[in-house]
């Protein structure tokens, strides 16, 4: 029993981080119908930025977050404005290919710069934990998870309460109409992509603090998790992504306890396919951009 509670607790904190990875992915997919294969690469890029800050200047990863966010926002903005916008109206497999190529470039660039070694950002508190009953909760993970949830909720509020959020939402629903209303679609798309990249970067930083990362296996796993969570949570639905992330986190950690090897991954894929076929509008939330749900 204690084992299960421990696994569940671990799953919740891990799920919070996965949710933060997935919200940006889901937002980009929902708003501009782009599936970003390089999303995991953005997360790992963020992790390297924070890792460098910690190595060179001894900066605490939580304090490095603003720097990571700004850097990744800029990176994402430029990528969207300079590349993805150029083929945004092309058949879908072209945007998939473009982001796949981008993924190769970023990851191999990182590998050349930093080698493919596993890295982690060391802090004095990451390994310390407190206990609730039989369950051990590491401070670092708890803080990271809490931050992830706060940011996800904040993004959801931005989307529903602010002018920028409304502009993004409107562009996602009907770009032509939005442009007629004076919304600069190119800029809005780039901002959306920038936000997604920044959130991925923050998530990467957190993952690097509570665990380890490398440029070869981490990005692909994160992108795949983002896929699953976005589909489960409903496209472009922020709260759906949050719940989807928690569900996946808990399922993976409890599944890891019950099942040998990596059966959990196989089951995650099976669930993904079943959801796509039976309820493409999402299992948890309702897709915000139902026009994208072509069946």
């Amino acid at each position: 029993m204690g084992q299960f509670l421990q696994a569940a607790a671990y799953g919740v904190v891990q799920g919070g981080l996965l949710a933060l990875v997935a919200v940006g992915f889901s937002l980009v997919w929902g708003v501009m119908n782009v599936i970003n294969f390089s999303h995991g690469a953005f997360a790992v890029t963020g992790a390297y930025v924070a890792w460098l800050m910690s190595q060179r200047f001894g900066l605490d990863p939580f304090l490095a977050i603003p720097i990571v966010a700004v850097a990744l926002f800029g990176f994402g903005y430029v990528i969207q404005r300079g590349l993805i916008n150029l083929i945004i109206n092309a058949p879908i497999f072209l945007t998939l290919l473009l982001t796949f190529g981008l993924n190769l470039v970023i990851l191999n660039g990182l590998q050349l710069l930093f080698t493919s070694d596993d890295r982690t950002i060391d802090t004095s508190y990451a390994s310390q934990s407190f206990a609730i009953g039989v369950v051990n909760v590491p401070y670092g993970r708890l803080a990271a998870c809490f931050l992830a949830i706060v940011i996800t909720v904040a993004l959801a509020l931005v989307m529903t309460r602010t002018r920028l959020g409304h502009a993004i939402g409107a562009t996602g629903m009907d770009r032509g109409a939005a442009r007629l209303m004076g919304i600069r679609a190119r800029h809005i798309y780039a901002v959306t992509f920038g936000i997604a990249a920044a959130l991925a970067g923050i998530a990467g930083t957190m993952i690097a603090t509570v665990g380890s990362f490398n440029p070869t296996t981490t990005p692909g796993q994160l992108t795949l998790d983002a896929f699953v969570i976005s589909v489960l949570g409903g496209l472009g639905n922020m709260y759906g992504a949050l719940v989807g992330g928690l569900v996946l986190g808990i399922a993976e950690s409890i599944g890891g306890l019950l099942l040998t090897g990596t059966w959990v991954n196989a089951i995650a894929m099976a669930v993904l396919i079943v959801v796509l076929v039976i309820r493409p509008s999402g299992l948890i939330g309702k897709a915000q951009y139902s026009g994208r749900v072509e069946v």
Binding site: W29, T262, A266, M269, I273, L276, V277, P280, V295
Partner: peptide
């Protein structure tokens, strides 16, 4: 039979998922 009812990105992702899933099955 089930997946070819999906279109666009949904078909792309579902087939991607099928391949990843099959690899995991073989792996295990």
């Amino acid at each position: 039979v089930p997946l070819l009812r999906l279109r666009g990105h949904y078909f792309a992702i579902a087939t991607l998922g099928a391949a990843e899933g099959l690899r995991e099955v073989v792996n295990n």
